[in-house]
Design a protein around this nucleic acid. Structure first.
Lengths: 151, 151
DNA sequence: GCACATCTACTCGGATAGAGAATGTCCGAGTCTCTGGGG
DNA sequence: CCCCAGAGACTCGGACATTCTCTATCCGAGTAGATGTGC
């Protein structure tokens, strides 16, 4: 249950892109240098965000990445799922229906209590991430951080 | 962000142990056959639960595993952390203090907003798991499941 | 019939391979910009 | 002075190694109970 390292990078990059003027793109090289990250590997995560529809990529000089929609419309959950995968964290194997103590199917109409609890916890986690947007992160940034980006 | 497969096995085993008479141990072989699981691999998870203080192990004939404390006192979170590790799911790398846009330390007294959101979500997940105990799972079991164990 | 020493069989625990995912890196395809020449 | 063609450089995207965690397995150490013998 460890979160991929790239999630942190990706969120920070999204925060940076949220502070650029509309229509302006930032190259992955600039993003990598901004946070001292390996450019080639960061590229993989940026690509994932493009595939997820969070970012828009432009090639050629003056090209790069920009947000595909308003920063208020991009949640932490969007970024996490883009990088870490959107599949369920837990898949019930229905082991209660196997082995010597196998339950008959008619007793398994309702969902297994174990799966229920794990799914409920995962949903709580997702709900929490849904409440925070990239715009929220920008708003809570120290005053100096925003000033530096203008340069 | 995928949950280890062994968590499901371990919880089910704990549920089984919660239904045995006090003082009686169940061998890992019996547990493995009960759910049709690979015994050797299940052993690793049971060992982890012993190390975490959730189970108590006895060697020799009539030996095996039993709960180390009442099933009402063992939460889903206890089991998940025993199997999946109790370390934090996310460790902030403080990349805001690196690279060309590095912030000075005096602007980083407060925790990074990204880390804050991720930690908050993780805590919501843990909180949810804390509310469910092994005893709760047993209570919600179909009537037939409990009867089978007596045999 | 009872107590004891031995022996067997059963239990867990740690050390040891294999598979898959995450991490990290490289080079090629496409495109926008800039430059130079001609009208 | 303006327009156009070409070259150049910069961008992202996909294909290729490496490392680490999770999965899976085996054999050895230790112990409780069963057994056989002697009293």
């Amino acid at each position: 249950m460890k979160l991929s390292q790239g999630v942190e990078w990706s969120v920070h990059c999204a925060v940076t892109l949220a502070q650029t003027s509309p229509g302006v793109s930032v190259s992955r090289r600039t993003l990598a240098e901004r946070y001292d990250l390996p450019e080639a590997y960061l590229a993989k995560h940026l690509k994932a965000m493009v595939s997820a529809g969070l970012l828009h990529a432009t090639t050629g000089p003056r090209g790069g990445f920009r947000l595909a929609r308003a920063s208020e419309e991009i949640t932490m959950l969007d970024v996490v799922e883009a990088i870490d995968g959107s599949g369920p964290q837990f898949v019930c194997q229905e082991i209660r229906q196997r082995g010597t103590a196998a339950l008959p199917p008619e007793q398994c109409r309702e969902r297994c209590g174990v799966a229920l609890a794990l799914d409920s916890a995962a949903e709580a986690w997702r709900s929490s991430l849904r409440t925070v947007t990239i715009a929220d992160i920008v708003a809570r940034l120290p005053a100096g951080a925003r000033a530096q980006l203008q340069a």
